[in-house]
Design a protein around this nucleic acid. Structure first.
Lengths: 140, 140
DNA sequence: TATAATGTTACTGTTAAAGTAACAATATGC
DNA sequence: GCATATTGTTACTTTAACAGTAACATTATA
C-alpha cells in the first residue's frame, strides 16, 4: 500500500460497485467488506464522492448509498477531481536565483508545458465513462 | 518540500541550464548554487541523467558536466524516464474478495484503461524537446 | 427513545522522498 | 607521487503525505 493516487482507484472501485447494483442500495460497511478495508476509510472517500454528486447517500438509520447519476454520465475525470487527486507534475519550489536566467524562468516555461499535457490527460479521462468500466467488468 | 515528481522538474532545470550554456562545462556545485539546493542532491539527479546518456560528466579534478546530446534530441519523456518518475496512476492493492465480481476484475479493467491513458501522456512528453524549453527561457 | 446508518474529526503508523553528510573513486597539476 | 578538486555512491536523518483506525457527532427510522 504505497503512495500515489490510491484513492482514485478506490473511488472507481466503489462507484463501479454501486453501478453494478444498478440503483440497489448498499451500506458503507458492505462496500468496505467488498473492498477489504475499513468502513471509515470507505466513508471518507464516499463522502467526497457524495459532495461531488456522484453518490447519493441517505443518512440516519436504514441509510445507504447508491449511484448519484447514471453511470453513463459519470466520467473518470469527474471521479479523479472528486477525490482531489494531486497534480501529476509538480515543480520544485526552490527560491529563485536572480542571477540565473534559467532559474528565473524555468517555473513559468516548464509550467506552461506541463499544464498543457495535464489538460490533454484530463481530456482523455473525460472521454471514459464509468459505464465502460462496469461493462468491462460484466464481460468477464 | 513535499512529495511528487520534483525530481523531474529538477532534472529539466539542470538540463536546461546545461543546454543554456551550449556545451560549456559546469560543476555540480555551481549547478546546485543556481538551483538553490545542496550539491549532493544535484549530483544524485545528475548521476541518473548521466547513466541515461543525457549528461556527460568527467570525473576527477577539473571534472565537470555538459549536455550529453543536442538539446534537440532530448525529449521530456527521456528525462521523465531517466529520473525514474513513479507511475501516474496506481491501483490499490487490497486482497481480492472472491465473492465480489467487481473486486475480482476491477484491477484488470481499470488497469487496462489507465495504461492506455499513460501511454498517451508519454507520447505527449516525447513530442516536446529540451530545446523548446530552452528556447522559451531565452525568449524572456 | 434506542438504534443504525452516514458524516466528520483527530490521531497513529507507514512509506516515499527530500535533504544531508560522509566517503570512495578518479583524474589533474604541481 | 601526492595534494586537491571534482564526480559518484552510499547511508543516514528528517519531513510530509497518505493509508488506516477509532471515536464521536449527526441524522432519520421504527
Amino acid at each position: 500500500m504505497p503512495a500515489g493516487n490510491t484513492q482514485f482507484s478506490i473511488a472507481v472501485h466503489l462507484l463501479a460497485g454501486l453501478g453494478y447494483l444498478a440503483g440497489q442500495e448498499i451500506t458503507s460497511g458492505e462496500l468496505a467488506a467488498s473492498i477489504n478495508t475499513s468502513p471509515s476509510f470507505v466513508r471518507r472517500v464516499l463522502s467526497k464522492l457524495s459532495k461531488a454528486g456522484l453518490v447519493r447517500a441517505t443518512p440516519g438509520k436504514a441509510g445507504a448509498c447508491s449511484l448519484g447519476r447514471r453511470a453513463n454520465d459519470i466520467s473518470l475525470l469527474e471521479i479523479y477531481k472528486a477525490v482531489g487527486a494531486s497534480q501529476i507534475f509538480s515543480i520544485h519550489a526552490y527560491p529563485v536565483q536572480k542571477t540565473c536566467p534559467v532559474s528565473c524562468s524555468i517555473k513559468s516555461s516548464l509550467g506552461k508545458i506541463l499544464d498543457k499535457i495535464e489538460k490533454t490527460l484530463e481530456k482523455d479521462l473525460a472521454k471514459i465513462s464509468l459505464a465502460e468500466v462496469i461493462a468491462d467488468i460484466k464481460r468477464k
